[in-house]
């Protein structure tokens, strides 16, 4: 298993491994988020997904998200692994684990992490449908970034 807290990998992600990375005697809670491949999106059936990443930068940006979380919520530990390559329906694409002394911070920080992943981490998914394929570029259903760029700095939020 990878010891890295922030990791991009091709092989399937094991939940237990990610949870272990954030275990702590200071923790009173560990939250996990498991992002999976959905079959139906707005009436359109996905057959499989292909994820691509700019791996070194993606891992850096995941680490940045971890730093942002630790600055916002004290005494948290964060581990994030994102999978790339060919993923079938129901496969796990991403797992985020956050531990903290109290549950509220663990829940909030975990949601913060997935929102930031969708803004700043250079990972792309290509949807393969029954009748075609396309790289997905704006999951927020926008044609372009509202401000012409993603919100890189946390302060921009």
């Amino acid at each position: 298993m990878s010891e890295k807290l922030f990791n991009v990998q091709e092989k399937p992600i094991q939940l237990e491994e990610i949870v272990k990375k954030v275990e702590s005697s200071n923790a009173g809670a560990i939250t996990t988020f498991i992002g999976t491949v959905r079959e139906w999106t707005k009436g359109k059936r996905t057959v499989y997904l292909e994820y691509q990443a700019y791996v070194p930068m993606a891992e850096k940006m995941l680490a940045q998200i971890g730093s942002e979380i630790q600055a916002k919520w004290e005494n948290t530990k964060v581990a994030i692994t994102h999978r790339i390559g060919h993923l079938d329906i129901s496969d796990v694409a991403v797992i985020i684990a956050v531990s903290s002394p109290h549950r509220k911070a663990a829940y909030e920080a975990n949601e913060y992490a997935i929102e930031r992943i969708k803004q700043i981490v250079p990972i792309w998914k290509k949807e393969q449908w029954e009748d075609g394929e396309a790289w997905i570029g704006d999951q927020l259903e926008r044609v372009a970034y509202q401000e012409g760029k993603p919100k890189i700095k946390d302060e921009d939020r």
């Binding site: 994820y51 969708k118 700043i120 250079p122 792309w124 790289w135 570029g137 999951q139």
Partner: peptide, 10 residues
């Protein structure tokens, strides 16, 4: 230099 289209991870 990397050209980075709008991202869609997660």
């Amino acid at each position: 230099v990397a050209l980075i289209p709008p991202v869609s991870g997660g």
